[in-house]
């Protein structure tokens, strides 16, 4: 067991030395790996923030139920009863008179309204759903529009729904991008290891001749891939951290302009650890493939 650990420590030291032996190419690799990991994660972070922005904007989720012009107070009572039974959240009745009074407050409109022979506005209900998930709001709107004497249901959160669709598509695209970049990371490591194996062909041959097992020969290369990927993940975190730090203040100002309550959330510990772990795994995997392919070629 002790010997086993010692062999692994030796391989890790060897990998460290390999990294330090060519600092320039190590830095270049870290930049490539870091960028490949940072881009999709940064994208996901932006989407995540947009989603929370959508959830945090005040009074976005509103459903307005406009009744037909001919509907009387009995019809309104019927809707009220249905709302009371359905419990969709907070709701409030806006009578046609109340609506007219409010509209009269708007400058320039009052004269026009005065000249009208009768109130053109319908009675309405304004519902603030308790469940603000876009699908839930959509469902509610559908139910409302099937009720009697409802002329029109207006979803004030249309843009939220569109945003949601956009976020879904964006997320899918980012996952595809992440897959692509993950593949690139594997290829980068594969090639780095290929060059190392070529440069160390004689060492590998001699090691085999004096009794090295395949595991002994593979280990330092796989540790190298693992270590490089791990550091790449940390570097990616650094990139995202600096990026979000630079962006957070102007973004906060922008959001404040729209009256939204929103805190930009950047990287948390799990994301950093996750990136480092994914980087380490992909690096290890690239090295594993490279060693498997190239050692086989060497016979």
């Amino acid at each position: 067991m002790k010997a086993f650990l010692a062999q692994h420590r030796m391989a890790l030291d060897d990998a460290k030395q390999k990294l330090l032996a060519s600092p320039l190419s190590a830095v270049l690799s870290l930049i490539m790996i870091g960028t490949a990991l940072a881009l999709p994660v940064a994208g996901l972070l932006v989407l995540d923030n947009l989603r929370s922005l959508a959830g945090g904007t005040p009074q976005v989720q509103q459903i307005s139920l406009f009744m037909t012009a001919s509907a009387d107070s009995e019809a309104a009572g019927e809707i009220e009863a249905r709302l009371r039974a359905a419990r969709p959240g907070n709701w409030r009745f806006v009578s046609r008179d109340e609506a007219l009074e409010r509209l009269k407050l708007v400058e320039g409109v009052s004269e026009i309204l005065e000249s009208l022979p009768k109130n053109p506005l319908p009675d309405a209900f304004v519902v603030e759903p308790a469940d603000i998930r876009p699908e839930a709001v959509e469902n509610l709107a559908q139910v409302f529009s099937s009720w009697p004497n409802i002329a029109h249901v207006q979803l004030d959160s249309d843009w939220v729904r569109r945003l949601d669709v956009f976020l879904r598509i964006g997320k899918l695209a980012l996952f595809m991008l992440a897959g692509l970049f993950g593949g690139a990371l594997v290829i980068i490591t594969f090639n780095t290891i290929r060059l190392q194996i070529l440069a160390q062909a004689s060492e590998i041959e001699v090691a085999r001749l004096v009794g090295a097992t395949n595991a002994f020969i593979r280990r330092p290369f796989q540790y190298f891939g693992l270590l490089q990927g791990f550091l790449g993940g940390l570097f990616a975190s650094l990139l995202i951290f600096s990026g979000s730090w630079l962006l957070s203040e102007p973004l906060d100002d922008l959001v404040a302009l729209y009256g939204a309550v929103w805190n930009f959330h950047g990287l948390n510990f799990q994301t950093i650890a996750g990136m480092a772990a994914i980087g380490a795994f992909l690096g290890w995997f690239g090295a594993f493939l490279s060693v498997t392919v190239h050692l086989k070629k060497m016979g």
Binding site: M10, V210, T213
Partner: peptide
């Protein structure tokens, strides 16, 4: 040292 490292000696 190489064969000794391979053999896993301290």
């Amino acid at each position: 040292l190489l064969p000794l490292k391979i053999a896993g000696l301290s």
